[in-house]
Design a protein around this nucleic acid. Sequence first.
DNA 1: AGGACTCTTGAATGAACATTCAAGTATATC
DNA 2: GATATACTTGAATGTTCATTCAAGAGTCCT
Lengths: 194, 194
Amino acid sequence: MRSAEFDRSHVLEQAMHTFMEHGYAKASMQKLTQATGLHPGSIYCAFGSKKGLFIEAVSYYHQQKLLAFEALFSDDQAVLSSLKQLLANTVQECVQNTCAKVCLLTRSLNEIEGQDPEIAQLLATNLQQIEHSLGEQIARAQRQGEAISDEAPLALARFITMGIYGMRTYAFTNADQNILEQMSAQLLRAIQKH
Amino acid sequence: MRSAEFDRSHVLEQAMHTFMEHGYAKASMQKLTQATGLHPGSIYCAFGSKKGLFIEAVSYYHQQKLLAFEALFSDDQAVLSSLKQLLANTVQECVQNTCAKVCLLTRSLNEIEGQDPEIAQLLATNLQQIEHSLGEQIARAQRQGEAISDEAPLALARFITMGIYGMRTYAFTNADQNILEQMSAQLLRAIQKH
DNA sequence: AGGACTCTTGAATGAACATTCAAGTATATC
DNA sequence: GATATACTTGAATGTTCATTCAAGAGTCCT
């Protein structure tokens, strides 16, 4: 026996950054071997293929986003203020000048469309899971009497989710923090009671 | 002298469809020659490169969208009803099962990020032009006393634009017509007077 | 210490890619 | 109809790509 010499999390972290920076197609194996420090053979041994590595990197990204979401929406805090923070964090990501400005899930979903149904399905499922969690939080806000619209919580969650997707694409045309903050405020207002 | 044997508009139309279906990177010259009926040499003679062909195909797409926009927002009609129709048309595109479901501009913008600043700039400029036209229409609606929020027309136009971008990405996760129509209604409500 | 097992290495492989160009072909002008 | 001037053709080019694999090296067990 002999255990693998590399730290799987660290490799996935680097691969994730490479895919975020270059997209799926343009993240060549050469870039991936440089970023991860692994040789081609090791990547194929550990992940099977470039696609396999991508799928694990996506899952790694998704896991991180889920954890951040759960940390943000802790039970002892108003849902609306957590939501406001979620949008503020998204804006902060969008105005970065690093690969952190992109959402690996939404960017890859746009790229992969019509190419690989298996990857598209994985991305969609991951995004829907976050949307679903958001729906639960909005339902909680309604139960707790926060000043939120009495529409179906899932409809409100979808609307916010769509808004975040839209902001991410919008930021590629104009990564102006003030504009993105104004959009966040408009989104929040749209789901509040008035 | 001898005039070109192919119809430039027809070639751009076919190239546009190929880029919409496969994205920029995966639309290989082989697929492009098959779709357009042109041989590689002819494409390079007429458009310089794959990138040159893409840029012209994007401009062709943009031109079409601008014409459709102007036809929709004719002067003798309430802006809000044209806007409603614009969103309904977008939903119809999103639920198609053909390449017509994607917006070449937003999809390419997501794909190209961090790869080719020249193309990114072109896409952003084209998208901003439509956003700007929408802003003018919203200003007109305000002047004509339609039941629309009295926020800055550009801010409202940005919000709708963002919403459309969001719906397009959302549709990749769940192309349900009812859901997309509900989102459209939520977007419209958010910019109306209340 | 020796042998068995497994992981690592990185050059080699073949496919797919964008691009070029010399030969071929059609048109226009005189 | 001859010549010049384009446009068309598609095989060839060189590059880049994902992937493989045989040789090498490390680790564990007896």
